[in-house]
Design a binder for these strands. Structure first.
Lengths: 181, 181
DNA sequence: AGGCTCATGTAAACGGTTACATGATTAC
DNA sequence: GTAATCATGTAACCGTTTACATGAGCCT
């Protein structure tokens, strides 16, 4: 449902090629909506067929041609309408918690190791996000509307990673205690 | 990948029918791994064909027969091996944050309304989880291993909802400020 | 010589959702 | 009479992932 919306939103600022979008997604929207380049190319074809975007081929010398897409009025209207609809909280598919349903005295060590690994992954992510925050968003109250939206995305990332880290620490401490019969 | 694992984990305690699993999932594992009854029935067929579970038909008078599945040794081994493998942090697909990438002065009110709605959903969830916690897990350090795993799942749910609520409050406050040009 | 970047795509497989189907019993 | 519960399933569709494909230029 929302892959097309994520692409349309990315085209708000200016026109992009599929290749541009794929790269841009890795750093921005794709953080909340991971997408592969195959999906982007296919979705762009559909959006063009539906008249939400318009394609224009840009010839390049000594490089493959680029196909640049820009929003149409219909595409813009679609976004505006979508913004008024309610979203569901995201499905929380956490494989690690499924594993913890199997926790017993025999597999405790394996799960401790797994949580430690994950703890480190989340610590790395948090450091990355905090660096971006310090560099690009030192004073959120002074941002214009568009940049406030992006700030809030990053902010959510930071809060989530901090929470997950805290949970990992709790989990490691709890599993280290001798278990009751 | 992990749907089959979620089912196998649910069969650890005792044998279940597809119908049982579907109901159980709604309250336990399905919280971290939402699954429909169709998926469960299909996956059980596959698991039975692969020898991970064994099916037994239980005749019932005046009710449809039940097909009860129990773990085989092969199924148990599969879980043990899976527990030692590393999991990735879950993909964080948050449609609301994609919407915030489109934030500008024209759609600010629509997004404020949307965040308020979401805030309420998360407050309701948090209340539900905290009630379960108070009733079933008053003293986590005294739990046996298996129940500790479940406790940690619920604990993660509570921390996540609290974080999301705090983020909603921040977002509402920030969007209420007059934006810079 | 080998691998990365630019730039676009097709095809097959897998996973998940939605709709449809049946049929008896129990509760309001 | 209407809806929910018990209990199992099929079929079509949609979204996503993985693998494969091409081909020039640039860097080490």
């Amino acid at each position: 449902m929302a892959l097309s919306h994520a692409i349309l939103v990315s085209l708000l600022d200016r026109a992009h090629s599929g290749y541009d979008l794929a790269k841009r997604f890795d750093q921005t929207v794709g953080f909340f909506w991971p997408v592969s380049h195959q999906q982007i190319y296919q979705e762009l074809h559909k959006l063009a067929a539906a008249g939400r975007v318009q394609a224009e081929t840009v010839a390049q010398s000594e490089r493959p041609n680029r196909i640049v897409y820009q929003l149409t009025d219909a595409g813009r209207k679609l976004i505006d309408q979508w913004l008024t609809e309610a979203t569901e909280p995201p499905a929380f598919k956490e494989e690690l918690l499924v594993k913890l349903f199997a926790l017993d005295d025999d597999n405790r060590d394996a799960l401790l190791a797994e949580i430690s690994r994950r703890r480190q992954r989340h610590a790395e992510r948090l450091a990355r996000y905090e660096a971006i925050m310090a560099e690009h968003y030192p004073n959120p109250a002074a941002l214009n509307a568009r940049r406030r939206g992006r700030y809030l995305g990053l902010r959510m990332g930071i809060l989530t990673e901090r929470t997950t880290l805290a949970w990992c620490d709790e989990a490691l401490a709890l599993l280290d205690l001798p278990a009751a019969g």
